[in-house]
Simulated assay, not measured.
Amino acid sequence: MSFTLATWNINSVRLREDLVARLLEEEAPDILCLQECKSPVEKIPTAAFEALGYKWRVARGQKGYNGVAILSKLPLEEAGAEDHADLGHARHVAGRLENGVTIHNFYVPAGGDIPDRAENVKFGQKLDYLASMRDAFHGARPEKSILVGDLNIAPREDDVWSHKQLLKVVSHTPIEVEALGKTQEAGRWVDITRKDIPEGQLYSWWSYRARDWDAADKGRRLDHVWATPDIANAAHSSRVLRHVRGWEKPSDHAPVLATFDL
Rank of each mutant, 00 (worst) to 15 (best):
D150M: 03
D150W: 12
D150Y: 00
L151V: 15
N152K: 11
I153V: 15
I153Q: 00
I153G: 01
P155R: 08
P155E: 03
R156F: 13
R156Y: 12
E157P: 02
D159P: 05
V160R: 06
V160G: 07
V160A: 05
W161Y: 15
W161N: 05
W161D: 14
S162Y: 10
S162M: 06
H163K: 07
K164E: 15
Q165G: 01
L166I: 06
L166N: 08
L166T: 15
L166M: 14
L167Q: 15
L167N: 12
K168S: 14
K168A: 15
V169H: 14
V170L: 11
S171R: 08
S171C: 09
H172M: 01
H172G: 03
T173K: 10
T173S: 03
P174K: 11
P174G: 14
P174M: 01
I175E: 05
I175Q: 08
E178N: 01
E178C: 04
E178L: 11
E178P: 02
L180K: 02
L180F: 14
L180R: 07
L180S: 03
G181F: 04
G181Y: 10
T183S: 09
Q184V: 15
E185L: 13
A186V: 09
A186D: 02
A186E: 04
G187P: 11
R188Q: 13
R188S: 12
R188F: 07
R188A: 10
W189N: 08
W189Q: 00
W189P: 03
V190Q: 11
D191Y: 03
D191T: 06
I192Y: 03
I192C: 03
R194K: 04
R194L: 11
R194G: 01
K195E: 05
I197A: 07
P198V: 03
Q201D: 09
Q201Y: 15
L202I: 11
Y203L: 13
Y203C: 03
W205I: 10
W206E: 13
W206F: 06
W206A: 02
S207W: 02
S207L: 10
Y208N: 13
Y208H: 05
Y208F: 13
Y208T: 04
